[in-house]
Simulated scan of single mutants.
Amino acid sequence: MISKVENLPNAPITDPTSEYQSASLLFTNGPNVHSYIKEMNEKVLSHYDLMTVGETPLTHHPEDIAAYVLPTNKELHMVFHFEQMDLDGDGDSLIQKPRQFTKLKALIEKWQQFNREDGFWNTIYLENHDHARSVSRFGNDSDEWRVLSAKLLAIMQTTQSGTLFVYQGEEIGMKNFPKSWGLDEYKDVATHNFWNQTKAARERISGGKPVHMSDLLDNFQKKARDHARTPIQWENAPHGGFTTGTPWMRVNDDYPETNVAIQVGDPNSVLSFWKKALALRKEHEVMVHYLQLSYYLSLSLILCVFKVYGDFTLHFAHHEQLFAYSRTLDNMKAIVVMNFSTGEINFDSQELGLCGARLALNNYEVEDRPFKDNILRGYEGRIYIAGVD
């Protein structure tokens, strides 16, 4: 967004029913954006030992995103792109659309395999300050399944290649605040703008008569950015221990049961599970996409050679609840199987090559439901480690 189309032209009319039109084409990926970033890299960034991360909203074409990241372009190390975050909605819309699980799997496969030989580097994340809580959006935040599905999402993220970003509160499984909260509890200007514009459009259609708006609150409870901005739930204390003053948003109602203090001492908590998953990721290089850069110098040539280690293979691509993939590096293989539903799933363990594999991590800490090798329980996730002949 640092380069905009000159002369401030009007945005094209793409929605005749709206007073305001999307102008993203006029301020994203502008005509000089790459020259600006190259200059910043040359004069500032390249002089320091640091990591650079950009953000590419409203940009889904892989080639457009890669232009910022490929090492030969000398711009940034990585960027946050939002293709998977836009699966259940259109851009800034707060109306939730049905999310097809197979599309999510296909997107992860695409980015895990994209331009590896040229040095493309991923950012791995499911939450940030502009998106609702992941356990409510991608998992199941009911009392029965919140902990298990939060751990499942930890498995999914820690077994992908790239740099992992964990957003504040995600590590304890914080969820969206409840439907009982009214519009006055939402503070984000984008939420209120969307409400006002939608209400005005409906009133124009109704001829000024009162209009029904409860459906919008239902969608806000699922999609609004406000959910990522409630105070961190440190302990069972006023405002969740976040402050002794008055926070700009009130703490979520579940802070007495979901907070850091409780989870620190609980080996079966979401926080403890994140620590286990991260430790496993560090222990086994096969679960991290490693990139070796070698520079060969001469008087007239700088040749940069990239060697990428670890691959990604998706299994059962068309299954609507099962997400399974394998990562292979030299003679080591990691197999990840996850059930994104409340019911049991039978899967073909032979296709995944589980014979002789060691179960390294499982999100069912308490065996209250019998473990079976080829059956995944509700929201169960497993990581197996195996040797490769």
Rank of each mutant, 00 (worst) to 15 (best):
P178E: 03
D226S: 04
T198G: 03
E171N: 08
A154R: 01
A200G: 09
Q233G: 03
W195F: 14
S142L: 01
A228N: 06
E144Y: 05
T198P: 03
P231E: 03
P210V: 00
Y125A: 11
T163G: 08
D184E: 10
K151R: 04
L217N: 10
A200Y: 09
I155Q: 04
L183S: 08
A190W: 13
F220G: 09
L148C: 00
D143F: 02
E171K: 00
R202A: 15
N193L: 15
A201R: 07
K175S: 09
S161I: 06
K175T: 14
H192F: 14
Y167L: 08
S136Q: 05
F220N: 09
K223F: 08
F165T: 11
G182H: 07
V147G: 07
H192E: 14
T163W: 06
R202V: 05
F194V: 14
K223P: 06
L153M: 12
S206C: 02
L183Y: 11
E185V: 07
D118I: 07
K222Q: 10
W234Q: 05
W145T: 03
K175A: 11
I172H: 02
Q168T: 05
A132E: 14
A154N: 07
Y167I: 07
I205N: 08
N122D: 14
H212E: 15
I172Q: 01
I124L: 09
K199D: 11
E185N: 12
V189E: 15
R146Y: 02
K209R: 05
G208K: 00
S180D: 10
D143Q: 09
M213W: 01
A150G: 11
A154G: 12
D226Q: 04
T159K: 06
R133H: 10
N122V: 02
N140M: 04
A150W: 07
Q168E: 08
K223D: 13
T159D: 05
W181F: 12
W121A: 15
I232T: 05
G169K: 00
W145E: 04
G173I: 01
V135L: 13
P178K: 01
S161D: 14
V147E: 15
V135H: 14
W181R: 13
M156K: 09
W145S: 01
A150R: 02
V189N: 12
L216E: 10
A200P: 06
R204C: 10
T230P: 06
V189H: 11
H227G: 09
N176S: 11
V147T: 13
I172P: 01
D215N: 13
